[in-house]
């Protein structure tokens, strides 16, 4: 970590190799596969630029994921939650095919996550996949924790239908 902070690109590449699966997964689930590659690259370039401001008060991974979430949300726009309120839940997962094969269930579940309304998806990814608390998510999104709790429940209610198919 200190080597990378000192400008060592090989050390920074090692950090990249360690953290890229989770960062890319986060980006893919938050904003979709098409934009995930560019967003992931942006995250690591920004991390390189901001390493000088990393004071080691938190673990590097924690710092990096926070930076990634903020960058991804900025990229997408924070109005997502407001927009999602106008989405008809009955139509949300209409396009998700039923996959009776157990081996393909996870892939189908990923697809279903991608079909969630934006606000519900963001909260679901951050809470149930990434493990952030409602207070933290509310801070990221600029909403109340009551809103994030409602969005999380909404996402779970929608996703449960996928598992029932």
């Amino acid at each position: 970590m200190s080597l990378a902070a000192g400008g060592d690109r090989r050390a920074f590449e090692r950090l990249y190799r360690t953290h890229v699966p989770r960062i890319h997964g986060l980006a893919r689930r938050m904003i979709g596969n098409d934009d995930a590659t560019e967003a992931t690259q942006d995250v690591f370039v920004r991390a390189w630029e901001k390493l000088g401001s990393f004071r080691g008060e938190a673990a590097f991974g924690t710092w990096l994921y926070r930076l990634a979430i903020n960058l991804i949300l900025t990229r997408r726009g924070r109005r997502a939650i407001q927009w999602s309120r106008h989405t008809n839940d009955e139509e949300v997962l209409h396009g998700v095919e039923s996959k009776p094969s157990t081996s393909e269930l996870s892939m189908d579940f990923e697809t279903a996550i991608g079909h969630l309304p934006e606000g519900a998806r963001q909260v679901f990814v951050m809470h149930d996949i990434e493990g952030y608390r409602h207070e933290e998510i509310a801070g990221f999104l600029g909403v109340t924790s009551g809103t994030t709790k409602a969005q999380l429940h909404r996402a779970r209610m929608l996703l449960r239908r996928t598992l029932q198919k």
Binding site: A5, G6, G7, R9, F12, E13, Y16, R17, V20, P21, R22, H24, G25, L26, A36, T37, T40, Q41, F44, V45, W48, E49, L51, G52, L105, S106, F109, E110, F124, D128, I129, R156, L159, R160, L163
Partner: peptide, 30 residues
Amino acid sequence: VITHAHQLETPAPAEDLWPGIEARLTTRVH
């Protein structure tokens, strides 16, 4: 649903993104 979410895997991206990232890194003073 919660269990499925916790069990999701996060594989590395299909393509190596490092060359594109490295090309954008600027020299930085520590």
